[in-house]
């Protein structure tokens, strides 16, 4: 067969793509590799060792990082559950209650946390909590996290809800289900993949946050990112690389999970 001009191909695009992936992955891989370095000097390679992982769990800084990790996970789980619930209700309002006054405004409000720069949100939250006399601490971190997690949960949930025709709920109501029962017995089960991916997204976003947390955390309260930041300010130590690699692993597990759930949801949608 004679060679045909492929209109989808541009010379060099593959090279750029590979370059792009190298830039994205090189720092992460280098840090992951160096976290297994036996040497105390972070730049000299002294053989493979798990010493720094042992140090993360038993070393002098271990209690600090453990507490920070617990805080991070408690906040991320609580904030993402609450944000997911709020986002699910809002999605129902936006996709299944027809037109209502303030619909456009509601959408703008939900997307607001995405539009306001993080540092501005951080300043605003700190100023607000101080002005109303709210003591900063875990609670203020939690509230701030719920707010900026809402749009991240909302986007996948409302997209999924829009793709489910309302005929299933109509059928349910036709078969004597009240609107509430139709929601609970029909829409919610069909929404599971969308709600899960919204939750996972919110969870990772919460876990990721440094700037806002750093502003609204009370004295002595740390999450993993703020604890790591504080430590890095005094120089990159090998135990930081071990922690980073652990978090990298957790992130990869989560994103793979969310990818698989999303794919399962798509396949299911195709079946119907």
């Amino acid at each position: 067969m004679p060679a045909k001009t492929d209109l989808r191909r541009f010379p060099g695009f593959l090279t750029v793509t590979i370059l792009c992936l190298i830039v994205l992955y090189a720092p992460l891989i280098v840090v992951a590799v160096y976290s297994f370095n036996a040497s105390t000097s972070i730049t000299r390679w002294g053989g493979t060792s798990l010493a720094w992982y042992v140090d993360v769990f038993t070393g002098p800084e271990a209690p600090k990082f453990q507490q920070a990790a617990i805080n991070s996970f408690v906040i991320a789980i609580t904030a993402s559950i609450i944000a997911t619930a709020i986002a699910t209700l809002a999605s129902v309002a936006m996709t299944r209650t027809g037109r209502f006054n303030g619909k456009t405004l509601s959408f703008a409000l939900i997307s607001l946390p995405l539009m306001v720069p993080e540092v501005v949100t951080a300043v605003a939250s700190l100023v607000f909590f101080t002005a109303i006399g709210f003591t900063t601490g875990l609670m203020t971190i939690l509230i701030a996290h719920i707010v900026f997690c809402i749009p991240f949960a909302y986007l996948p949930i409302s997209a999924r809800m829009q793709s489910i025709p309302d005929m299933y709920e109509q059928a349910a109501m036709d078969l004597y289900a009240t609107p509430r029962e139709a929601f609970k017995l029909v829409l919610l089960p069909l929404m599971t993949p969308g709600i899960l991916s919204g939750f996972l997204l919110a969870f990772i976003i919460s876990l990721d946050d440094f700037l806002i947390t750093n502003f609204v955390k009370g004295a002595g309260v740390e999450t993993l990112p703020t604890a790591i930041f504080g430590s890095v300010k005094q120089g990159i130590k090998p135990n930081i690389m071990a922690i980073s690699t652990l978090m990298l692993g957790i992130s990869v597990i989560f994103v793979s999970l969310s990818w698989l759930i999303g794919r399962a949801g798509q396949n299911k949608a195709k079946e119907n």
């Binding site: 005929m167 109509q170 109501m173 036709d174 069909l190 079946e271």
Partner: peptide, 29 residues
């Protein structure tokens, strides 16, 4: 409202609940 009317509908696209078995669908109403 629809759930208070003793009439039932066969939908154009059937609208069978995909997350339920056949008998669960039939038992729903």
């Amino acid at each position: 409202p629809p759930h208070k009317r003793p009439v039932n509908t066969v939908f154009q696209q059937y609208a069978l609940f995909p997350h339920m078995t056949v008998i669960e669908n039939v038992m729903f109403g």
